[in-house]
Simulated scan of single mutants.
Amino acid sequence: MTCRVILIAPAITPSLRRARFDDGDSIENPAAVALSLPAGRAVSSPSVRCRETATALGLDASAEPGLSGLDAGRWRGRTLEEVSAAEPEALVHWLSDPGAAPHGGESVRGFCARVTEWLETTGRTTGRTIAVVEPEVVRAVVLHALGAPETAFWRVDVPPLTATEVTGGPGRWNLRLGQVGGPGVSGEVR
């Protein structure tokens, strides 16, 4: 049994441009969002930007709570610069220790476990799932697929509107880079 999961990062938002922890803002220029995607079950993170990106892509995606972004606790809506100025030690601790959650939100370790649970459950199905998800969800899936440590979480860059594909099933995932899904399907922005 093979499962394919194509993860699409959301379109750019004003928060992303300002390196701000998600504050629920809308995507910029929805009319410019276009990817050529294969058919499949569509899901999204429940955030505004992921739901709007899915809609702009023409997907009828259901929101999956297990794909929510990393809970930044009291830092939500603040820029990295603001947090760094107000709580420099806490920010360094959070960025260097996957088990830390000084902001009162979710640790990277807990977040990765939640995303892994979603992926492993999804992997028990056959067919293709297209998931419009927060960049940190893509990071967690990549780490799980490669068996990489959680300390590598912040070392995976996920630009807006990029596609990442994993294939396989519970306990064994392969990461596919480059063209997504086969002929006529690409992760390029039109």
Rank of each mutant, 00 (worst) to 15 (best):
L16W: 08
R17M: 13
R17D: 13
R17C: 11
R20H: 04
F21A: 02
D22I: 03
D25N: 14
D25Y: 11
I27C: 05
I27A: 07
E28L: 15
P30V: 10
A31H: 14
A31S: 15
A32N: 06
V33W: 11
A34V: 13
S36E: 15
A42C: 11
S45F: 08
R49I: 01
C50V: 09
C50T: 13
R51A: 14
R51D: 07
R51Q: 15
T53P: 10
T55V: 15
L57V: 01
G58M: 09
D60Y: 01
D60V: 01
S62G: 15
S62L: 14
A63M: 11
P65C: 01
L67G: 04
G69W: 01
A85F: 02
P88M: 05
P88N: 00
L91R: 07
L91N: 01
P98R: 03
G99E: 10
P102S: 04
P102R: 04
G104F: 11
G104M: 11
G105I: 04
G105C: 02
G105Y: 02
G105Q: 00
V108F: 14
V108Q: 06
R109V: 00
R109H: 15
R109D: 15
G110C: 13
G110K: 00
C112D: 10
C112P: 09
V115L: 05
T116I: 10
E117S: 13
L119T: 00
T121A: 14
T122L: 12
V133K: 03
V133M: 12
E134P: 12
P135E: 09
V138T: 12
R139C: 14
L143M: 11
L143I: 04
L146N: 03
L146R: 14
G147Y: 08
E150L: 04
E150C: 10
F153W: 12
F153P: 01
R155T: 08
R155W: 10
